[in-house]
C-alpha cells in the first residue's frame, strides 16, 4: 500500500518540483522569452478559457469522428479478412503501403479531393488512426487458439458465429492495444488537418500563437493537446481494464 502511494507521490513531486524550478527561473529572468512561466500559462488558460474551449471542442470533435471512422473501417476490413482468409495478405499489403505514404503527401491529396472541410479533417484523422487498429484486429483475429477453433468446428458453428463468439473475444487484447496506440494519433490527425488551413481547432490556435509570438497561449494550447492525447490513452487503458478480466493478457487466451 505504501509503495502504491509512493508510486504516485514520487513522480508527482518530481513534476511539481520541475514546474516550481521553471517558475523560479522565470521570476529570476533566466528563461528565454519563448518559455513562459508556468503560472502565466495557467493564467492564460483561465483567461482565454472561452477561446480555448471553442477550439478544443472542434479538435475533439474531429478526433472523435475520425477515430470512430477508423474503427468502423478497421472493423469491417477485419471482419472481411476473417471471413475470407485469402484477403489477408492483400489487405495487409495495401495497409502497409498506405501507411508508408507520408502524411504531408496525404494531406494535399485529401484537400484536392475534398477541399478544406470537415470531411477532409475527419478522413485525414481516420487515415492516421486506421493502421494500428487494423493491425491489432488482424493479429488478434489470427491469435485464436487452435483447439478452440476445432471446438467450434465440431459444434458446426457458422463463420459469423465463429467471428462473434470466438475470434472477436479472443482478439480483444490485441484490439485494445491498437485502439490505445491510435487514440493519441487521432488527436495528432486533427491537428495536422487544422494546420493545412482550417479556421477552428487547437492546431489553428497553436500556429497563430506561434506566428504572433503569443507564447503563453501557445504553451496553453500545447498543454491541452498533451492532456488530450495522454488522457485518451489513459481512458482506453481504464476501459481495457474493465472489459478484460485480469486473467487475459495480450496473449489472447489464458493458459
Amino acid at each position: 500500500m505504501s509503495s502504491r502511494i509512493s508510486n504516485v507521490a514520487l513522480p508527482g513531486s518530481v513534476f511539481l518540483l520541475l514546474t516550481l524550478a521553471f517558475e523560479l527561473a522565470g521570476l529570476a529572468g533566466l528563461l528565454p522569452p519563448t518559455i513562459p512561466r508556468p503560472v502565466k500559462v495557467v493564467e492564460n488558460m483561465v483567461g482565454d478559457g472561452a477561446v480555448l474551449w471553442l477550439h478544443c471542442r472542434s479538435t475533439v470533435l474531429t478526433a472523435a469522428c475520425g477515430y470512430a471512422m477508423a474503427i468502423g473501417a478497421a472493423f469491417s476490413a477485419g471482419f472481411l479478412v476473417h471471413q475470407h482468409k485469402a484477403l489477408e495478405t492483400a489487405a495487409l499489403t495495401i495497409g502497409t503501403v498506405l501507411n508508408s505514404i507520408p502524411i504531408i503527401a496525404v494531406a494535399p491529396i485529401l484537400i484536392i479531393w475534398m477541399g478544406v472541410s470537415w470531411p477532409m479533417r475527419i478522413t485525414l484523422t481516420a487515415f492516421l488512426c486506421f493502421f494500428p487498429i487494423f493491425v491489432g484486429m488482424i493479429q488478434g483475429l489470427g491469435a485464436t487458439e487452435r483447439n478452440a477453433g476445432e471446438l467450434f468446428l465440431v459444434l458446426a458453428a457458422t463463420p459469423a458465429q465463429r467471428f462473434w463468439k470466438l475470434a472477436l473475444p479472443s482478439a480483444l487484447p490485441y484490439i485494445f492495444l491498437g485502439l490505445k496506440i491510435a487514440a493519441p494519433l487521432a488527436v495528432l490527425g486533427a491537428l495536422v488537418a487544422e494546420w493545412t488551413g482550417t479556421e477552428t481547432g487547437l492546431g489553428v490556435l497553436m500556429i497563430n500563437a506561434m506566428f504572433n509570438f503569443q507564447m503563453e497561449r501557445l504553451w496553453a494550447s500545447v498543454l491541452i493537446v498533451c492532456i488530450l492525447s495522454a488522457g485518451s490513452y489513459g481512458a482506453l487503458s481504464l476501459i481495457e481494464r474493465v472489459v478484460l478480466t485480469a486473467d487475459r493478457t495480450a496473449d489472447g487466451i489464458a493458459p
Binding site: 506561434m210 500545447v222 493537446v225 495522454a230 489513459g234
Partner: peptide, 23 residues
C-alpha cells in the same frame, strides 16, 4: 521517480508539439 512521467509523456505524439518546438 521519472519512469511514470516518461510513460505518460511518451503517449503524446511528438509532431503534435512541433509548433512549440519551433518556437
Amino acid at each position: 521517480a521519472l519512469m511514470p512521467l516518461i510513460i505518460v509523456v511518451r503517449t503524446i505524439p511528438v509532431i503534435a508539439v512541433a509548433p512549440l518546438m519551433i518556437s
